[in-house]
Amino acid sequence: MNDRRDHYPNYSFEFLRDGDMLDAMFWADEREKAFYAEFGEVISFDATFRTNKYKMVFVPFTAVDHQKKSVIVGVGLLSRETIESYEWLIKAFLRAHEGKAPKIVLTD
Rank of each mutant, 00 (worst) to 15 (best):
M56N: 05
M1D: 04
F35Y: 14
E84T: 07
D18K: 09
Q67R: 11
P9Y: 02
H66I: 03
S85Q: 07
K69A: 10
T48I: 06
N52H: 11
E38V: 04
K55D: 14
F39G: 06
F49E: 12
V42H: 05
K69G: 10
D23Y: 04
V57R: 08
K69R: 15
V57A: 03
I72H: 05
R80E: 10
G99D: 04
Y8V: 15
N52R: 06
D29V: 03
A37Y: 02
R95N: 15
R95W: 02
T62A: 03
E84D: 13
E30T: 15
V64E: 06
F26T: 10
F15R: 09
A96T: 10
F26I: 09
A101K: 15
T48E: 03
H97L: 08
F61K: 00
K68T: 08
A96P: 13
N10W: 13
I72R: 01
R5D: 00
A47M: 03
A37W: 00
V59C: 14
L106T: 07
E30L: 12
F39D: 06
F26N: 09
D46Q: 05
S44Q: 08
E41I: 02
L94M: 09
R17K: 14
L106M: 13
H97P: 02
I43S: 05
A24M: 02
R95K: 15
E98M: 09
L94A: 14
F49Y: 15
H97E: 04
K103C: 12
A37N: 07
R4S: 04
L89H: 08
V64Y: 02
V42K: 12
P9L: 10
E87P: 00
F49K: 11
R31C: 13
R17T: 13
P9V: 13
P60T: 10
S79W: 03
W27Q: 07
L94R: 03
G19E: 11
L89E: 10
V64T: 15
A24Y: 01
F45E: 00
Y86F: 15
A37M: 01
S44P: 03
I83S: 10
M25P: 13
V42Y: 05
V73W: 01
Y36G: 05
Y54G: 06
A96Q: 11
V73D: 01
M1G: 11
I83Q: 10
R31P: 04
L77A: 01
T82F: 06
A63I: 04
E87Q: 12
A47I: 00
W88C: 09
K103S: 14
N2D: 10
A47E: 00
A92T: 04
A47P: 08
A63V: 04
E41N: 14
N2V: 13
V42W: 02
V71K: 09
T107A: 12
L89A: 05
A37L: 08
F58Y: 14
L94W: 10
E32Y: 00
I43W: 06
I83M: 07
K33P: 09
